[in-house]
Nucleic acid binder design. Structure first.
Length: 426
RNA sequence: GGAGAGGUGGCUGAGUGGUCGAAAGCGGCGGUUUGCUAAACCGUUGUAGGUGUUAAAGCCUACCCCGGGUUCGAAUCCCGGCCUCUCCGCCA
């Protein structure tokens, strides 16, 4: 959510900034509604002031045993007018709210121009893609031969887009979760959280997913709950409506959480293997910071996501995403992409975003710099640290050997009970 | 799922449909006193919107879980929702 006061003060700047994202924002309509709203409030409040005066008078007259009938009759009329004004004001407000809720965050000046992912700018690369002396296979071939992933049975259970992890595959998934959580807790100073997987509409609204992305999520209608599309949602929800006391920032949280996406618009895209699933595991990094610190925190979180891939010895690159490709709530976003030699392509395993005060305003999350100081909105940042299925792809495809076995990265072996490789079990 | 109780300011806790933004206590902050600490005493103590201003002060309005309603007037009455607690049932 953008600050209406910013739009009021600098409408042209906002219009221009949003047009970088390909967003034709209806600034004029918003401003007209805003003006109307304030006019209605002024009128209504003037009448309310009279009501309050009259109310005291009525009470006094009655106490003194006088006749308050005439003034009550007059107030009846005023009361009706106040109701009318307030009703109109509510409808103007909800219209404004609906428009405002759809506007994305303003991109930072360091965000490159461009409307599609082709315009994302590579800013760094780590590791050398391995050369093979045999044709590298895609992960689904490796995994099905090892009997560690079962797409057919996953579909039998829950439909296409769901996978059954088996044996070494299931263990690899569990090991990765623990490995990542431990790294972020002990080396990067995050506090571990384990949130509910289902969230309420209000929380989704607060993190910017509703109303715009309702079709991309699973909705449990009977209870009006949503399967969260990313742990970012429940973590944002932790501090909704709070004023954080002085000294509490930054708050750094890490959470494992399954994520659920309907992928409604993605039919036919990346349907094979683990690239795009309706349910996937993710370890999520999140920070609540002071406003002036958030861009430093963004760089820090990017380092934390990269550290996972480096520990796993997986080659990756970093992209500074262009204005048209950053998330709705983000003002700046980096993508981290791992190299998948079997697929011969880069796969996004992390998105690290600074959402500035966009989510904080919607979720009403504030802090005080010192005791007695005015509450200010915090800045929120989220980043995958990192998404699991594509990391599994990279481990399988980078670690594959000609005999079909897969070498497990050193750092992960303690989490796999000392296993050094995955082979076909008897 | 069934039956009941309840949600008041940072906390505890009063509150009759009318001078209630709300008693009292605690805590916090400031001050007096004291060699220092403690105690005592005095004062102060939220959030948001509108208006105003160079900025502020000031003024107005709203907020007693949230949203509606009744009424000239709602913390108080009615309806819906959310949450907490107790008992029963079910269950890992």
């Amino acid at each position: 959510m953008l600050d209406i006061r910013l739009i009021r003060a600098e409408p042209e700047a906002v219009r221009q900034a949003l047009s970088r994202r390909g967003e034709a924002a209806a600034i004029d309509e918003l401003l007209a509604l805003d003006a109307r709203r304030r006019e209605l409030i002024t009128q209504s409040e003037q009448l309310k002031a009279r009501q309050n005066q009259a109310s005291e008078e009525i009470s006094r007259i009655k106490r003194e045993g006088g006749d308050a009938t005439p003034i009550i009759a007059e107030m009846k009329d005023i009361s009706a007018r106040v109701k009318g004004l307030d009703a109109e004001c509510r409808s103007v407000e909800s219209e404004m709210e609906a428009m405002l809720a759809k506007l994305p965050n303003i991109p930072h000046e360091s965000v490159p121009d461009g409307l599609s992912e082709e315009c994302n700018v590579p800013v760094d690369q780590w590791g050398e893609p391995r050369t093979f002396d045999f044709p590298p296979r895609p992960h689904w071939e490796i995994a099905e031969a090892l009997d560690i992933l079962d797409f057919e049975r996953g579909a039998r259970i829950a439909g296409s887009g769901f996978v059954l992890y088996k044996k070494g595959g299931a263990r690899l998934e569990r090991a990765l979760i623990n490995f990542m959580l431990d790294m972020h807790i002990s080396r990067h100073g995050y506090v571990e959280m384990y949130p509910p997987f289902l969230t309420r509409s209000e929380v989704l609204y607060g993190s910017g997913k509703l109303p715009k992305f309702a079709d991309d999520m699973y909705h449990v209608q009977l209870d009006d709950l949503w399967l969260n599309p990313t742990a970012e949602v429940p973590i944002t929800g932790i501090h909704v409506d709070e004023i954080l006391p002085p000294g509490s920032l930054p708050l750094k949280y890490v959470a494992y959480c399954a994520s659920f996406r309907r992928e409604a618009g993605a039919a036919g895209k990346d349907t094979r293997g683990l690239i795009r699933l309706h349910q996937f595991d993710k370890v999520e990094l999140f920070q609540f910071t002071e406003p002036e610190r958030s861009y430093d925190a963004l760089e820090e979180m990017l380092r934390h996501a990269r550290a996972v891939l480096e520990a796993l010895e997986l080659p990756y690159r970093v992209l500074n995403c262009c204005a048209g490709d950053i998330g709705q709530a983000a003002s700046k976003m980096y993508d981290v992409e791992v190299w998948a030699p079997g697929l011969e392509r880069w796969l996004e395993v992390s998105s690290v975003s600074n959402c500035t005060d966009y989510q904080a305003r919607r979720s009403n999350i504030r802090f005080r710099r010192e005791a007695g100081a005015k509450p200010e909105l915090v800045h929120t940042l989220n980043g995958s640290g990192i998404a699991l299925p594509r990391t599994v792809i990279a481990i399988l495809e980078n670690g594959q050997r000609e005999d079909g076995s897969v070498s497990i990265p050193q750092a992960l072996r303690p989490y796999m009970g000392g296993m050094e490789e995955i082979r076909l079990e008897g």
